[in-house]
Write a protein that binds this DNA or RNA. Structure first.
Length: 367
DNA sequence: CAGCCGTGGCC
DNA sequence: TGGCCAAGGCT
């Protein structure tokens, strides 16, 4: 029985015996400890695809209610293809990374038009579709179609990086980790194997305090043997945080307020907000607003201030209220060429708004 | 390829 | 409290 002393390293990996043993250990653990998640109870590629996109950079707990609601509203790929982008963005509201929602819409239309409404089954075909990269393609191909494809998400990157103590710089490690994932995935059970790998990363091999004594791979793990499993794999340096400061103006006319739609690209793409003016200098918010809107705003009043954290930005928005001195047909010059709507507060919830705008809607003085 | 793209939870 | 982190992909 040489396996108790066999040492794991990438150079001679895989040794068939080790790979067979690692697969068996992981799948046995998954059978006992795997999570019961709704997208594991179906083989419907549409449902699995939706879950995979929602789960990009987003935790399971956050996704669950969105997933359930989405499948009730848009149960098939045809329903999604036929839906308005507005409906899609509204269902996505609050999940973040809104390009994912636009890409879902685009891809659904491509599947209907170019594939007759039938999902392509190979990772290669899937990866061509908007929003589906290498890992998501592997996840869908293995989960929905039982194909032997590898995945590499944050969980798998951590589990495999520690198993083989990968300490290369991030770019180099990436290629190595893909190679390991591909060699390890079990051709007899690619779906369960990949799901097990992610569960192990999410519940045992966690980022901060891994529970090595509960790990089915503890005997082989080079990261654990090193005494500092959290050193692996090396994480890329964080970029610095920048500041956005400006004024959100609630412009009222006949009981309605002006909403404008953000551009189709960039931050919070396609979502609705109150006109926002970035402050260039350190001037008063009233002055900032008048510079942008001219003198057709009457009775400017301060309603408060909202702060919001993005991953790499901090937003501070002064909130001002003003009365529009003209009619609904006329618009401030800076709004004229943008998609807009005059909306009474009771209809605000029908518009897809980012979190910072929801904070404005919840200000005490507006309740 | 490095920067960009949201939000909520965690310690 | 502030920084870190999460079932990544796009440009």
């Amino acid at each position: 029985m040489g396996h108790s002393t066999a040492k794991l390293s990438l150079d001679d990996f895989p040794e068939p015996e080790q790979v067979v043993r690692l697969r068996a250990q992981l799948l046995e653990w998954y059978g006992r400890m795997g999570r019961d998640l709704p997208w594991r109870r179906t083989r419907d590629p549409y449902a699995i695809w939706i879950s995979e996109i929602m789960l990009q950079q987003t935790q399971v707990k956050t996704v669950l209610p969105y997933y359930q609601r989405w499948l009730i509203a848009l149960p098939t790929v045809t329903d999604l293809a036929d839906a308005d982008l507005e409906t899609v963005l509204k269902l996505w509201e609050g999940l973040g990374y809104y390009t994912r929602a636009r890409n879902l819409h685009k891809t659904a239309q491509a599947i209907v038009k170019e594939h007759g409404g039938v999902f392509p089954e190979t990772a290669r075909q899937l990866q061509v579709l908007p929003g589906i990269g290498r890992s998501t393609a592997g996840a869908i191909a293995s989960s929905a179609f039982g194909r032997c494809e590898a995945i590499l998400d944050a969980n798998v990157r951590r589990v495999l990086g520690r198993l083989l103590a990968v300490d290369d710089p991030p770019a180099r490690a990436e290629a190595k980790l893909w190679e390991i994932s591909q060699r390890l995935v079990d051709p007899q059970a690619p779906h369960n194997f990949n799901q097990a790998l992610m569960d192990l990363g999410a519940t045992v091999c966690t980022a901060r305090s891994p529970l090595c004594l509960l790990c089915p791979w503890q005997a082989d793990c080079l990261g654990r043997r090193s005494g500092e499993p959290t050193r692996f794999p090396v994480r890329p340096a964080r970029t610095v945080r920048s500041e956005i400061a400006g004024v959100s103006v609630l412009i009222e006319c006949q009981g309605k307020f002006l909403l404008v739609r953000r551009p189709e690209r960039g931050l919070l793409a396609g979502l609705w907000e109150f006109p926002f003016v970035e402050s260039v200098g350190g001037g008063e918010p009233e002055e900032t607003v008048r510079m942008a809107f001219g003198n057709r705003l009457e009775s400017l009043e301060r309603l408060g201030q909202v702060e919001h954290e993005f991953t790499h930005r901090h937003l501070t928005a002064q909130v001002l209220w003003a009365r529009w001195a003209a009619t609904l047909d006329e618009l401030p010059d800076c709004i004229e060429h943008r998609e807009h709507a005059w909306v009474a507060p009771e209809h605000w919830p029908e518009y897809a708004m980012p979190a910072y705008v929801r904070k404005i809607c919840r200000l005490q003085c507006l309740q």
